[in-house]
């Protein structure tokens, strides 16, 4: 409890990162539900679409808090440029860099959605499909950077998020229609492989001993202080 009050920024960064990832997960699932024309009995289809949009905006706001507090926290050096240019943070360069990459992809998705009428449906959609990639990159960023990855609850949360997104994608690929069988099987395989890769990474990385040093060491000989 003391640590919480001594390090409010650090704790806010961790908490907002977790919340943002949860919100992005909900956004992805609602987006898949919308495009698959899921029609719940007690809800309008337009409500699914409105929730998808509004929760995505909420996620953006929480991401702002996540990034802002990470920068403001003086303990870890990250630097302003690392907000948009990946792999510049001296602190856990690779793993913070993945967060930057996810943020860049998301920014592209948000901005193109804001000007959707002007750029047209096809280009908007091409960029919007990056959301899946952004979500997956954010997942690896969360597990690789997060100080909470070893917590049972945190792993449970990631697993739930992974399960619902994978289920939504597979369901979508299954119901989308008879055509493009090879492409659909390929995408399904890639999705499952990504999930398998994630658990492999968890086992070899964050859940294996001494991760906080290994996450840092690849880039600098001087290990950062370990924080819990």
């Amino acid at each position: 409890m003391n640590a919480l009050f001594n390090d409010p920024l650090w704790f806010t960064t961790r908490a907002s990162g977790t919340v943002a990832f949860g919100l992005l997960t909900v956004t992805v699932v609602l987006g898949v539900a919308g495009v698959a024309r899921y029609a719940p009995a007690r809800m309008g289809r337009f409500e699914v679409a409105a929730l998808h949009r509004n929760i995505s905006l909420l996620a953006l706001a929480v991401l702002g808090v996540h990034i802002g507090t990470a920068l403001a926290d003086s303990f870890v050096p990250i630097g302003w440029t690392a907000v948009v240019v990946p792999f510049l943070s001296p602190y856990r360069t690779t793993w913070v860099g993945l967060g930057t990459l996810a943020f860049d992809l998301l920014l592209a998705v948000y901005l193109t959605s804001a000007v959707r009428l002007r750029i047209g449906q096809r280009r908007w959609k091409a960029v919007h499909l990056c959301s899946y990639g952004a979500w997956a990159v954010a997942l690896f960023h969360a597990a690789g950077t997060g100080s909470d990855t070893r917590l049972g609850l945190q792993i449970t949360l990631y697993s739930v998020c992974v399960a619902v997104v994978l289920a939504a994608i597979l369901w979508r690929l299954y119901t989308v229609g008879p055509g493009h069988l090879a492409a659909r099987v390929g995408l399904a395989t890639a999705s499952v492989a990504t999930v398998a890769g994630f658990y492999g990474f968890l086992a070899a990385g964050p859940l294996a001993p001494n991760w906080s040093h290994r996450a840092q060491q690849a880039q600098s000989t001087e290990p950062m202080g370990e924080r819990r």
Partner: peptide, 9 residues
């Protein structure tokens, strides 16, 4: 609102 909500524009 209907115009804005149309997924296909």
């Amino acid at each position: 609102r209907a115009v804005a909500a149309c997924p296909a524009l």
